[in-house]
Amino acid sequence: MNLPKPNSSYEPALVTRAGEVIPNAWQLLVDEDTTGAEGPYVLGFERALRDLDGLNGHYGVRVNPGDDVRLLEPFLDRITLIEVAFPGYRDGRGYSTARILREDLGYIGAIRAVGDVLRDQLFIMMRCGFDEFLVKDKDPAGAIAAASQRFSTTYQGAADSARPVWALRHGIGA
């Protein structure tokens, strides 16, 4: 039997919440790699905490599920990209990470979901404040379009601009 390929067997492609497929200019520095001229670089979490104080320019930081993103607060003005890792899609810690960045720390740079990112998670990722997705799907732009249109109603306030139903019901924030 010729079955279509499972979602996760597609090569990841980088796509924005607007549905634009974009090239990835960033490289992840493994621990002791030195920064060269060809940046921009994404630093591991520990390294970011250690080095960002003495670095100039703008960096990205990789946040793994167990990392406390609030520790990045002093450095946020030097960070333009935060990659939130989903080693497995069942690990939901990254959703809290993104909301804390947006709603608590007021971070306005890019938040990118990387790892096990499938089309069925895109809607809630957008709601939590993600704006770039390294998604595994045969049609990345189509996956974004489908996720954007999936729900006309949201019951709760989150990091996006969607108004919760109670705000719509009572004309709040119109």
Binding site: L3, N7, F151, S152, T153, L168
Partner: peptide
């Protein structure tokens, strides 16, 4: 109308997921 719209959207989402499972696109 909001509650109805939400439930409808959710069913459509799940119908799509079932179809993708039946076709093998989802493991």
């Amino acid at each position: 109308t909001f509650d109805h719209a939400f439930t409808r959207d959710r069913i459509r989402e799940f119908s799509d997921q079932v179809a993708r499972r039946l076709s093998g696109e989802l493991t």
